[in-house]
Simulated scan of single mutants.
Amino acid sequence: MNIKKVFITGVTGYIGGSIASLLIKRGYTVSGLFRKDADADKLKALGILPVKGSLEDAPLLKAESLKADAVIHAADADDPYAVDTFLEALKGTGKTFIYTSGSSILGNKDYGEKNDFVYTEDIPLKPRFEKAHRMEINNHILLAAKNRVRSIIIVPTMIYGEGFGLKKESIQVPMLERVSKEKGAGIYIEKGENIWSNVHIEDLANLYLLALEKAKAGAYYYAENGSSSLKDIAQTISDRMGVKATKSITIDEGVKYFGLEGAYFALASNSICSADKARLELGWAPKYSSIHDFI
């Protein structure tokens, strides 16, 4: 497999930027999609070839797909149009398409209640209807392997740690931290007993590298190395703030702060999975196992 040139969407973001930086260190040539003119020089400084455009620009996406040996889509996980553009462009080429999904597809409306069921890639998913579209996208991508696209899906869990691209912060923990500062203590939704698997951004970027180099067409991997309840995360935030107490907020208050998706699925659901498949098939050996050390 002779992959040298990689085109990345979401390259100004937390995941995409971190993947790009790692690939450049490993000798790959990386180009990346960006929107804001101010980001062009910043990307060049990181060694990334900037490509001005958007996910709505189908001709541009097709052209960049054909220039590259592989495409890593780390932008909008809910956009079927960009996915279809990439898969149509890559059909019959045998080139690699790695897609970034997200483990909220494992969640239900749990309202902060605990459910400690652990998903593996072999367990069929029937997500709630609010998340069903993302599963349809995933299935469409995996089936592209039949059309000679080396399609691969990676499903990150709750990501933590400092990014090494332009964007340094993840999403879920900083969301909690901002509201916790307003409330004067670490916060969680309802009981906060719900559990999320988690993964450090450095380990996640390494998983993308291994998938790029080793994964088979149609491969699907969860990414995790540990888990924590949202109440325990809230306690760590309180500890860092120098206070003992934590605070529960209602699901309705959570919606006001985090939106419907953020409250119900990112912060009040359970999302627990095993990444043993990535460890076994790709030799992935994550180094970090405690989200609490990085809050």
Rank of each mutant, 00 (worst) to 15 (best):
T120R: 12
G254C: 01
K216N: 07
G27I: 14
P286A: 06
Y28H: 05
T157R: 03
A40I: 08
I171Q: 02
L166V: 04
G16Q: 06
D252T: 15
I195C: 12
L282E: 07
K114I: 14
T250H: 10
S170V: 06
A234L: 09
A205Y: 05
Y28F: 11
L90P: 08
L230Q: 14
A278V: 00
L212P: 10
N108P: 04
D110I: 02
A275Q: 04
I15A: 04
N198S: 12
I233P: 00
L267F: 11
K91R: 15
N225G: 06
G226C: 09
D57Y: 11
K25F: 03
I19L: 01
E88N: 06
V155P: 01
Y221R: 08
Y99G: 07
Y119T: 07
K247Y: 01
L280P: 02
V173N: 10
H292F: 15
K191M: 09
I24V: 15
Y81L: 11
M241G: 01
T236K: 15
N270V: 11
M158P: 05
E113D: 04
I123Y: 14
L46T: 13
D252H: 14
G47I: 09
L49K: 13
W284M: 02
G16D: 00
E190Y: 01
Y220E: 05
E182S: 07
M158S: 13
Y111E: 03
L143G: 11
P127Q: 14
T12K: 15
A234H: 01
N225H: 12
A38Y: 00
E224Y: 09
I187D: 09
E190T: 00
W196F: 14
Q172G: 03
F117D: 00
Y208W: 10
A45S: 02
A38W: 03
Y119S: 03
I48F: 01
M241Y: 06
G192N: 02
A275W: 08
N138T: 15
V11E: 12
A38E: 08
N2S: 05
A211D: 03
T157I: 10
P174D: 03
I141G: 05
L23I: 15
G283N: 00
I153S: 04
D41Q: 07
V71N: 11
A70I: 15
S229Q: 07
N206K: 14
